[in-house]
C-alpha cells in the first residue's frame, strides 16, 4: 500500500512541473509587455521599470521561469498587483467556500445519480432505462449559468425558499445558503456520472461472485444490497475522481452568480482587473487542487479495493 502511494507521488513530480510550465507560458504568450498591460496607460516609465524589475522581466526567460517555480514551491504563487498580497493568502481565505461547494455538490450528484443509475441498471434495455437516459440528456443540455438564474427566479425570488446569493456564518447557515449553487454543479455532475454508474452496476451484476451468491440461495434483494451495491460504490470513487476537474471548474461559474467569495469569484475578478499574477497563480493552484483530489480518490480506491493493493 505504502509503495502504491509512493509510486503515485513520484509520478506527480513531472505533472506538477508541467502545470507550472503551462502557467508560466500563459503569461509568456500574452501580446505586448506584461508590465504595461498590467499597469495600464497611467503608469510612468519609472513605475514600469520598477514593475519589470519586481517581476524579473529584465531577466532571461528561463530565469523568469525559475522565479515562478520558486514562488510555487515556497507556496506564495506570486503577488497580487491589486491586493498587494501573496496569491496564497487570497486563496486561503476563499478556499473553504470552494471546497464546500465541491463536496456539497458531489454529495448532491450522488444522491441524484445513484437512484437513477440503479433504476436504469435494473431495467436495462427497456423503456424505463431509456426514459432515464433522456432525462439526463435534458439535464446535461442545460447551461449551468442559465440554470442558476432559473433557480433564482423560481426558488429564491418566486417561492422565497432560498436567498439569491451570498454566504452565512457557521456550518448550518452555509448548508442552507450554498444549497442552490451546489445544486447547479451537482446536477451537471450527476448527468455526467449517472451513465458510468449505470455501466458499473451492470458490470457488477455480471460478476462471478454475484452468480455464486445467487447459487447459495440468497434472494435478489440480498444479493443486490450485500454484493452488487457495495462493489459498485467502490467504482464510483474512481468515476468521481475522473470528473473532479469538471466539478471544480463548475464552481467558477456558480460562485460568481451566487456571490460566493470563493476561488472562482477571485479568478473572474482577477481577469476583470487584469491582475495577471493572480490569474496565473490561481490557474496553477486549480490544477494542483485537481491533481491532489485525484491522488486522494486513487488512494481511497486502493484502500477500498484489495485488488488494486495487490497489484
Amino acid at each position: 500500500m505504502f509503495q502504491v502511494i509512493l509510486k503515485r507521488l513520484l509520478m506527480l513530480v513531472p505533472v506538477l512541473i508541467g502545470i507550472t510550465l503551462i502557467g508560466f507560458l500563459l503569461l509568456q504568450v500574452m501580446p505586448g509587455d506584461p508590465a504595461s498591460r498590467a499597469m495600464g496607460t497611467r503608469a510612468s516609465p519609472e513605475e514600469l521599470e520598477a514593475m519589470r524589475r519586481l517581476w524579473g522581466l529584465d531577466q532571461p526567460v528561463w530565469v523568469q521561469y525559475l522565479y515562478f517555480l520558486r514562488d510555487c514551491v515556497t507556496g506564495s504563487f506570486g503577488v497580487s498587483i491589486f491586493h498587494k498580497l501573496p496569491v496564497i493568502d487570497l486563496v486561503a481565505a476563499r478556499l473553504p467556500f470552494t471546497l464546500g461547494i465541491v463536496l456539497y455538490s458531489t454529495l448532491i450528484a450522488l444522491l441524484v445519480a445513484l437512484p437513477f443509475a440503479i433504476m436504469a441498471a435494473l431495467n436495462r434495455g427497456n423503456p424505463v432505462d431509456s426514459a432515464i437516459r433522456q432525462v439526463f440528456v435534458v439535464l446535461i443540455a442545460m447551461p449551468p449559468f442559465w440554470l442558476c438564474y432559473v433557480l433564482i427566479l423560481w426558488l429564491a425570488l418566486g417561492l422565497g425558499w432560498f436567498p439569491t446569493g451570498g454566504v452565512g456564518d457557521g456550518f448550518a447557515a452555509n448548508v442552507y445558503r450554498l444549497f442552490l449553487p451546489s445544486l447547479v454543479v451537482g446536477l451537471s455532475t450527476a448527468a455526467l456520472i449517472q451513465q458510468s454508474l449505470r455501466s458499473a452496476l451492470i458490470d457488477t451484476m455480471k460478476a462471478d461472485y454475484v452468480d455464486t451468491a445467487r447459487a447459495k440461495g440468497l434472494n435478489g434483494r440480498a444479493v443486490f444490497l450485500r454484493h452488487i451495491l457495495p462493489n459498485s460504490l467502490i467504482s464510483t470513487i474512481s468515476i468521481i475522481g475522473v470528473r473532479v476537474s469538471w466539478i471544480i471548474g463548475g464552481t467558477v461559474v456558480v460562485e460568481k452568480i451566487f456571490s460566493v467569495p470563493g476561488l472562482g469569484s477571485l479568478l473572474i475578478d482577477a481577469i476583470v482587473s487584469r491582475d495577471l499574477p493572480v490569474i496565473r497563480g490561481l490557474t496553477v493552484f486549480f490544477a494542483i487542487m485537481v491533481v491532489i483530489v485525484n491522488l486522494i480518490t486513487d488512494i481511497c480506491y486502493a484502500l477500498a479495493d484489495p485488488r488494486v493493493r495487490l497489484e
Binding site: 500563459l26 476537474s245 490569474i279
Partner: peptide
C-alpha cells in the same frame, strides 16, 4: 505527458485564463 498535464486544468479555468490574458 501533455494530455496528462493539460487535463489537470479545469476546462472553464483554462479557457477563462487564456481569454483573460489575451
Amino acid at each position: 505527458r501533455l494530455t496528462d498535464i493539460v487535463w489537470a486544468f479545469p476546462f472553464y479555468v483554462l479557457v477563462l485564463a487564456i481569454v483573460g490574458v489575451l
